[in-house]
């Protein structure tokens, strides 16, 4: 039996997406529209900064929402109360793990496109009131100048890849020595912010700190992916219910 079948991975991805997002498609679309309107309207309501800055804030909020999808999908993967537990579905760990990222990517793309159009429309409408007389046309969130860059992708990958190891690692904290989890998390964040700290202390120039941060973020993403996969293999449904 193959340890990775693209067909099974796609079926597993369809299973999660079907049950989480497309169970009631119209309600899901309406909920997504409401959330997107809310997160795009939030910076407008605060009214701080220029239109460009408010759009950037809206994009940041949508990025947080997108990152939240992998948390949602992971918690579903290890859910205890599903009629057929996801861990019992006949698919390999690798297929389930790949499906997790495929599902998150799919959700991310849909949310980005949706937010881009809906958010763009909200800002177009708001522009008539906030900057009357200036008709710059509709600007799509994320697809405008400076809407998305490499740094955003790196951060998105880092955070998304951290979820599958961080959740089980923290959940299993009682299995380790008391200091293990806090020390590991502290070391993780220290590594991440080390270049910034070194630059702040004047040890390395800011440009070198940026390059070093990119290298560290890429390395940590790779570590996250391997570690998350290992944690999935160790996953146990260790909540006790009535026997």
């Amino acid at each position: 039996m193959k340890s990775f079948s693209f067909r099974r991975m796609a079926m597993f991805c369809r299973l999660q997406a079907g049950e989480l997002y497309f169970r009631q498609p119209w309600k899901s679309a309406a909920a997504l529209a409401l959330i997107v309107v809310f997160v795009t309207a939030l910076p407008l309501l605060s009214g701080n900064g220029s239109m460009e800055e408010m759009m950037a804030e809206s994009e940041d909020l949508v990025k947080v929402l997108i990152t939240g999808q992998i948390v949602f999908l992971y918690l579903d993967l290890v859910s205890e109360r599903r009629a057929i537990g996801r861990m019992m579905i006949p698919a390999t760990y690798l297929e389930k793990y790949a499906a997790l990222y495929a599902g998150a990517a799919l959700a991310g793309i849909i949310m980005t496109v949706f937010a881009s159009v809906v958010g763009g429309a909200v800002y177009l409408a708001a522009g008539h009131f906030l900057t009357p007389g200036q008709d710059g046309g509709m600007q799509f969130l994320f697809f405008r100048d400076g809407g998305m860059n490499m740094k955003d992708f790196l951060v998105l990958f880092l955070v998304s890849s951290a979820v599958p190891w961080a959740i089980p690692f923290v959940r299993r904290r009682k299995r380790y020595r008391p200091a293990t989890v806090p020390c590991t998390l502290a070391a993780y964040f220290l590594t991440l912010f080390l270049p910034g700290l070194l630059a702040f202390a004047g040890v390395i120039p800011p440009k070198a700190a940026k390059v070093l941060t990119s290298v560290i973020v890429s390395a940590l993403t790779a570590v996250n992916l391997v570690w998350g996969y290992a944690m999935l293999k160790k996953y146990e449904s260790d909540q006790r219910y009535d026997d």
Partner: peptide, 13 residues
């Protein structure tokens, strides 16, 4: 293996 757990949830489907 098919495990039928007690207290499972189908969800709205």
């Amino acid at each position: 293996i098919f495990l039928m757990q007690s207290g499972f949830r189908f969800g709205r489907t």
